[in-house]
Design a protein around this nucleic acid. Structure first.
Lengths: 180, 180
DNA sequence: TATTCCGTACAGTTTTTTCTGTACGTACTA
DNA sequence: TAGTACGTACAGAAAAAACTGTACGGAATA
């Protein structure tokens, strides 16, 4: 069985690396290991198989799978005559990469933008209020300028994310590398 | 003091949003709050001022500042005749954004690529070994193909990151939005 | 040189997150 | 309809992370 060990060791080295870096996607190392397992698996796996393979509880597998599903990194597969749910890795890496930004970054940018727009509106009220002292009005104007700059930046980020979502970015950075 | 409260409330709303979304950069909410504080501060702050403002320990401030420094989100400022270290936010947002990918993503991609290249090399040995059974050889070939595909994907990511690092991306997604 | 002040390493505590086992709702089977 | 199998909600346990106070090394001051 020496040769199987060599194969397994090779796999686990890669899985370790993947698991360790999965935090970039907000995924725990455990879910990262699961992802690595699915990466090498040539057939979809059930929760019980995962549990068996990783020596963890079924509940953990269920949760990990969900977090991977949320990011479209994994998909549920239907297999005729199989009662259990089956999951396999989604192998269009580029789409997964783009989805991550659409799902996580877009949300964050929107949240921040919304808060800042609300804030700007409140600051405007404050500035227009005749009872506001000059010192406060000045401060409000300074804050508003900062917020406005930041909103411009978020607008840029949104446009970058647009190019991900539409895959336009691939015109600029093509999948096939230029042969030069 | 009603007007100061309104100003403060407006700020804290924005700071909350920032703090909450800072996890995208692998920054804790606490460090995120600090970042928000520095965002609005019109002068560099000392650790003691931060500690005072956020009601946390100086040690925490020290750690938070370091994590922000690591990502180039904050910079140490020298002020004549001041013994304490002063820190202010780096306000070239775009650069900060690019730096994040250079610092965190590039590292991760390199780690994964290295592991996979090593793995491929081991698999090649296994394939060349005359003692290897046919079943294992086949499996090794399958694994190798997967790893090779993944390496191509990492190469694409690296090229995307190159365009960030060189700021070439700004030719594709310009800071100034087109007026259409 | 002695003294004071500053930032951080370190160890211990608190808080948060992750993981597990049990229990339950739903869907398939007989 | 009763029984079985599956996935997940929930509560508690274990592990990890964040936070604090103390103590120390190094730099500025006197």
């Amino acid at each position: 069985m020496k040769e199987h060990d060599r194969l397994a060791k090779t796999r686990s080295m890669v899985i370790d690396a993947i698991a360790q870096n999965m935090h970039l996607y907000g995924i725990t190392p455990s879910a990262g290991r699961l992802y690595g397992l699915l990466f090498f698996s040539d057939k979809p796996l059930t929760l019980d198989e995962m549990k068996e393979e990783l020596g963890m509880s079924k509940t953990s597998m269920s949760n990990s799978v969900r977090s991977l599903l949320d990011l479209n990194m994994v998909e549920k597969v239907w297999v005729k005559g199989e009662r259990k749910d089956l999951y396999s890795i989604r192998d269009d890496w580029y789409q997964v990469f783009f989805d991550y930004f659409t799902i996580r970054w877009r949300t964050a940018i929107t949240m921040n933008s919304t808060a800042m727009e609300k804030s700007i509106s409140k600051l405007n009220e404050l500035i227009d209020d005749p009872n506001t002292t000059e010192a406060v009005r000045e401060q409000a104007l300074t804050d508003m300028k900062k917020l406005q700059e930041r909103l411009d930046y978020y607008d840029w980020q949104n446009r970058l994310l647009d190019s991900f979502e539409t895959k336009d970015i691939l015109n600029f950075v093509p999948i096939e590398k230029k042969n030069d």
